[in-house]
């Protein structure tokens, strides 16, 4: 019997998911999203549908996310947050994003943040998925964000963050400590 066809939609969704999965498994290492579509569109297609929700402040991204049938929810209730660019002005609202509860820590928000990888603030990561320590450099993310994350991530509570630079992606689960100067 021939297996069912590996369609383009399936390939995109799966390969995007695998990049997300390995990025979260080995925090700080750079993984590649598939090449043929804009990064946030790929991520939305791979994770969002009518059973989940999103938040974005980006007017151009809004219709792309809406197309997945996911619900647009306010910042304190949305499951997936998309920031193609993030500035200090976004941080106050971000402080409201869900960090989960002790009973259901999986209800915490996942943040996708556009940035530039490989230059800027040097970070040292430690924790699950990291053999010792992992170095990472990020620019385009305001420094107070890192303080905020530090305050919010009290395992098992906290956000799971993905840093996205073009088709490059890095995962920072809540379980990881980020050190910086």
């Amino acid at each position: 019997m021939t297996p069912p066809p590996y369609t383009r939609a399936e390939a995109e969704a799966r390969e995007t998911f695998l990049a997300l999965m390995w990025a979260l498994s080995y925090p700080g290492r750079v993984y590649q999203l598939p090449a043929h579509k804009p990064n946030f569109e790929l991520i939305a297609g791979s994770l969002l549908d009518l059973e989940t929700s999103y938040f974005t402040v980006d007017a151009k991204l809004q219709p792309v996310l809406a197309q997945t049938s996911a619900q647009a929810l306010p910042v304190d209730r949305a499951a997936y947050h998309f920031f193609p660019a993030i500035g200090e002005e976004h941080l106050a609202a971000l402080g409201e994003a869900c960090i989960g509860t002790r009973l259901y820590p999986d209800e915490a928000a996942t943040l996708f943040i556009g940035c530039a990888l490989g230059s800027g603030l040097p970070l040292t990561l430690r924790g699950p998925g990291i053999n010792g320590a992992q170095a990472l450099q990020v620019s385009g993310v305001p420094k107070p964000f890192w303080h905020m994350r530090q305050a919010v991530c009290r395992f098992p509570l906290g956000w799971d963050v993905y840093l996205v630079d073009g088709q490059q992606i890095v995962g920072l689960p809540r379980s990881v400590q980020v050190e910086f100067k």
């Binding site: 799966r14 998911f17 999965m21 979260l24 994770l47 969002l48 809540r174």
Partner: peptide
């Protein structure tokens, strides 16, 4: 698949 994949990511984030 999408539902399962979302859950797998949560599981990895909360060992």
């Amino acid at each position: 698949k999408r539902e399962l994949r979302r859950r797998i990511l949560k599981a990895i984030a909360i060992p």
